[in-house]
Simulated scan of single mutants.
Amino acid sequence: MNYTLHQLQVFLKITQTQSITKAAEELHLTQPAVSIQLKNFQDQFDIPLTELVGRRLFITDFGKEIAQAAEKILHEVHAINYKTMAYKGQLTGRLKIASVSTGKYVMPYFLSDFLNLHQGIELALDVTNKSKVVESLEQNEVDFALVSVVPEHLQIEQIDLMPNRLYLVGNMDQQFQRKSYDISLLEAIPLIYREKGSGTRHVMEKFITQHHLPVKKKLELTSNEAVKQAVIAGLGFSIMPLIGIKNNLHDGELQIIPLEGFPIQSTWSLIWLKGKKFSPAASAYLAFLNKDKDRIIQQKFSWLEHYKAAR
């Protein structure tokens, strides 16, 4: 046998996602590249690793055993790399973070300087929906989780990073001339929602419930990007985080409709299980955030305050 570490990485990701498409996305590869690596890996075994039933990919029992072995091999390779870096006096290890989907507009800016400073640290950043983020944290699979709504059922500690402001937005087809509208406007327009469990939806529904507004739910979509495209296409309006629509506002694809009581606000917080024993990499990152978060906000997110002032 002559399989490569890359083939092991690809096959392991396929078993974790049970999808070539999703594996390609998470590995930042094309689908054909992942399919070729799977075929080359499979060619080295007489027993099938996967099987296709209809359009669904399934991992065989043999494939699951090979995946477990692959995970152990890759873990040992990481350990060798970390020991080599540590021997050179560099901070090493894996930093594991789960982030809710809209957090992709926030988390990278709080990571880049730290990772540039400590190039021996490997980042595992999983951007997914809120329920999976909370599950990863609950199962102690990650060091930290970035959320905009803190889960109430877990004993956690946290560091608050920055405000998360949400506005009512629509496309440019309709003109809104007033400086401010009553929130009863929400009763007259079709609203596009995020999926259940989304932090954005939680904040949105909390506001609507508190004000007893009989709104019209037009659509329910599973990502911030899908909601944006639906709003731009004229399918309805939505309440969205300002952090995720900067370019769309600048390009004239979206507009903020000024409502009394808006923006609605939550907080971007990095949370971890209470009493968690941190790795050296995780401890160093938390110390970095406590020291540098204000500088990062000023350098990378000052436009939020300027935009608010301009409104």
Rank of each mutant, 00 (worst) to 15 (best):
E26K: 14
Q229Y: 04
R194F: 03
V10L: 03
A188H: 12
F45N: 12
E260F: 06
E253K: 15
T200G: 00
N171M: 03
I73E: 15
I47N: 07
A145K: 00
S223P: 02
S302V: 11
V100I: 15
N2W: 04
K216Q: 15
F110R: 06
G197E: 05
G63F: 01
N116K: 12
A281K: 04
P241V: 08
H28A: 10
L242F: 06
P263I: 05
S19K: 11
V34A: 12
L259A: 09
T209N: 12
A282C: 08
Y285Q: 10
D143M: 07
E122D: 13
K308I: 12
L161E: 04
I36L: 13
K196P: 03
N247V: 09
V149W: 02
T200W: 01
N129W: 04
Q18F: 05
L235P: 00
Q139Y: 12
W272V: 11
V134Q: 02
K132C: 07
V100R: 00
T92P: 01
K246I: 04
H28M: 08
V127D: 02
S269W: 00
Y82Q: 13
K196Y: 10
S148P: 04
I121Q: 03
T222H: 12
S269Y: 03
E25T: 10
A86P: 01
D113L: 07
